[in-house]
Every structure is written in structure tokens, then in C-alpha cells.
Amino acid sequence: MTTLSRLDALQLRASVGELADLLIDTVHSGASIGFLAPLDRRAAIAWWEGRTAAVSAGRLAVWVARGEGRLLGTVGLVFPDKPNSRHRAELVKLMVHRDGRGQGLGRALLKTAEAEAVAAGVTLLHLDTETDSPAESLYRSAGWTRLGAIPDYAASPSGELHPTTIFYKRVGAEAAPLGA
């Protein structure tokens, strides 16, 4: 059985080893999520430890999926700190371990982040993902709107430049069509 839960700062700090292992697996399986391969475990741990302050301050929310006694996936929402942008958030670092793929974990994490965004008063979500990646089809099938692509936006884990696709999704009351 898989459980999804939101981590507070203490839980995040206690989970950095597992989160680092997930990050390494994701990078080493070819996902372009901001890191180059090979990703050193110390660097992966340091990156996750660096998120603790943002979670403490409420600028970042992190959810994890656990199953079979281990961490299998994660997703985050970054909340802007400017007064004119508090209605939106960025979906970040949706990752599912190779052993957990194909079981609906990515979709479950995405739905959880969307629902929690609505509960937090967010009406607009946005994200970027490598163009033509498996993640792109997940977002499309989950009702996200493709805005466009930016060429040579980010390097893949192997260092090759790839385009990224920008998506957005209206959520909550703002997602309903006018007159509904």
C-alpha cells in the first residue's frame, strides 16, 4: 500500500537520505531535473538539506509517496513571496523511483499537489519539463495546458541541451468555465 504525505521541515530533514537516493535514481535514469550525471550522494543530500529553510518558511511544500517500506516519489510546490503573485505556485521536482513507475504514483502525486494548492488558495499552477519527456504526456493527460517551448533551456543529465515545455493549469474555482 502506498501512502502520500506532506513533510514538515523536521520530517524533510529526517528524509534527506531517502530523498537524495530518489534524486540520484531519477537523474541516473535520464530525467532532466536540474542535475548532471553522475550525481554524487553528498551533493544530493546537500541539495535536499537546502530545502529545509524554504519548507520552514512556507515557501515550499513537499509531498512524498511511500510504499513497500521506502520512499518512491516526491513532488513540490513553490509559493511566491510577492503580494501580486500569491494566487499562483510552481510545481517542481515531480519524481518517481524507477521501481515505482507505471503504478500511477506520478499521477497521484500530481493530483495531491493540485488539491493542496487549491486548499492553500492557489488558482494557477505552472511548471516546466523537458520537451518530449514522459512527464510531458502525464501533464497533458492531467489537463495541463501547453504554453510553448524554449529551445536549449536545460542540459540533460548527460550535459546535452534540450528544449523545455512550459505548462499551466487553472485550479479550484478559477478552473470552472464562466457561467458554470
Rank of each mutant, 00 (worst) to 15 (best):
L94P: 04
S156E: 06
A117I: 02
D128K: 07
A115V: 08
T112H: 13
A119K: 14
G76T: 06
A142P: 03
N84L: 12
S137H: 15
T74V: 13
G106R: 02
H87C: 12
A120S: 09
S158M: 13
D81G: 15
T112D: 09
A108R: 14
T74W: 13
L77R: 00
S156I: 11
P151H: 01
A154I: 09
S158I: 11
D132A: 14
D99V: 09
N84F: 06
S85T: 15
S85Y: 12
A89Y: 00
K111W: 13
N84Y: 08
A154E: 06
F79I: 08
P157A: 04
P134G: 10
Y153C: 14
G69E: 10
H126T: 14
F79E: 03
P80C: 03
L127V: 03
L94A: 12
S156N: 10
L125I: 05
V118I: 11
L77A: 10
A155F: 03
L109N: 06
S85V: 13
P83R: 08
E130W: 03
V118L: 07
I150N: 13
Y139A: 03
P151Q: 01
L127F: 07
G102T: 08
A117N: 05
E136T: 02
R107F: 05
S158K: 10
P134K: 07
K93F: 07
E116S: 11
A120D: 14
M95T: 07
G148R: 03
S85D: 15
G76Q: 10
V122T: 01
L91S: 05
A115N: 14
D132T: 11
